[in-house]
């Protein structure tokens, strides 16, 4: 099995461990990820606030580059913001031939073209639907019994396009976690917003959203995420969140592929744990890493 692969900007910088662990996990699942050569930024959540047309042209360019690769038409995307931008073009163009024409006018200037033949898939869709919990379980070398994990989905892999899960009460991570022996923390914050880029522009408010999420995770050993922005908001501002809330809300935060990777027998180093900002000693001991 193989997928085209779009890591996106965050995975080259502040969330390298998501890139490292995704690659390591898929390689141990014998699935190859073929990175789109010379890929460019999808516009993240910022481009739309500056220009609508730009916010569709940037992901359209990425899809046009993907179409030039002839190995496969399924594109795996780990970052939820990138995923939504790419998915948006895929979905909108299906219904709007004029938009396709406009995007092609823009792409033509670089001798690129868009047919819209690529199927955009979020990492969680690939893991939960294409790979599935059974294959994960078959390859599990180290059951993580005794761990309780809170699955955090965030917004943009669920909404506005409910492709692979319930957009308000998501559960797609649960069978994957159970497959490696993990107990699922019961909470209703999995699909709530972490504040996204508000952490940069209106941080006082975003800090409150994060406090609510961390508080609801009490009792769990860690929260797992599937998006670099969620991960960063939950892990990087904990001092400020605790001091603002006036309570201890420190929580370990890690990426889903990091957790599954440990279960599949990969080492903490191979999964980029050195780069995590909030993984407690206690969690490391429980995971024996």
């Amino acid at each position: 099995m193989s997928y085209l692969y779009y890591p996106g900007c965050s995975l080259e910088g502040t969330s390298q461990e998501y890139n490292i662990s995704t690659r390591a996990l898929f390689s141990s699942l014998d699935i190859s990820l073929n990175e789109i050569p010379e890929w460019t930024c999808c516009g993240a959540s910022a481009a739309e606030s500056v220009s609508y047309l730009l916010s569709l042209s940037l992901p359209a360019r990425v899809l046009a580059l993907a179409e030039k690769m002839d190995d496969c038409d399924q594109l795996l995307v780990p970052c939820s913001a990138c995923y939504l931008n790419l998915k948006k073009v895929e979905e909108k163009v299906k219904k709007d031939p004029v938009l396709l024409e406009n995007l092609n006018t823009i792409l033509e200037a670089e001798n690129l073209s868009l047919k819209n033949s690529t199927k955009v898939k979020h990492l969680l869709e690939v893991l939960s639907k294409d790979v599935g919990p059974d294959s994960i379980q078959k390859k599990t070398k180290k059951y993580l019994n005794g761990l309780t994990i809170a699955p955090y989905y965030g917004c943009q892999c669920l909404r506005p396009y409910p492709v692979f899960d319930d957009p308000e009460a998501p559960t797609s991570m649960e069978p994957l976690l159970k497959a490696v022996g993990v107990k699922v923390h019961q909470w209703n914050m999995g699909s709530k917003c972490c504040g996204a880029s508000q952490m940069a522009t209106k941080s006082d408010i975003a800090v409150k959203y994060v406090a609510d999420i961390l508080r609801a995770a009490k009792g769990a050993d860690a929260i797992v995420t599937v998006c670099p922005m969620c991960q960063m908001n939950l892990e990087a501002y904990q001092e400020k969140v605790c001091s603002t809330a006036g309570e201890d809300l420190h929580t370990s935060i890690l990426y889903l592929p990091q957790l599954l990777g440990i279960a599949l027998g990969l080492s903490a180093k191979e999964l980029g744990f050195d780069f995590n900002l909030a993984v407690s000693k206690g969690l490391r001991q429980k995971m024996v890493i």
């Binding site: 460019t40 930024c41 993240a44 481009a47 606030s49 500056v50 940037l58 880029s197 522009t201």
Partner: peptide
């Protein structure tokens, strides 16, 4: 100040292709 964040983001992308 909010809009500057988005603008600088887009500028950085424009300049380098990636953020």
């Amino acid at each position: 100040s909010s809009m500057d964040f988005y603008k600088y983001f887009v500028k950085s992308v424009c300049r380098h292709g990636r953020v």
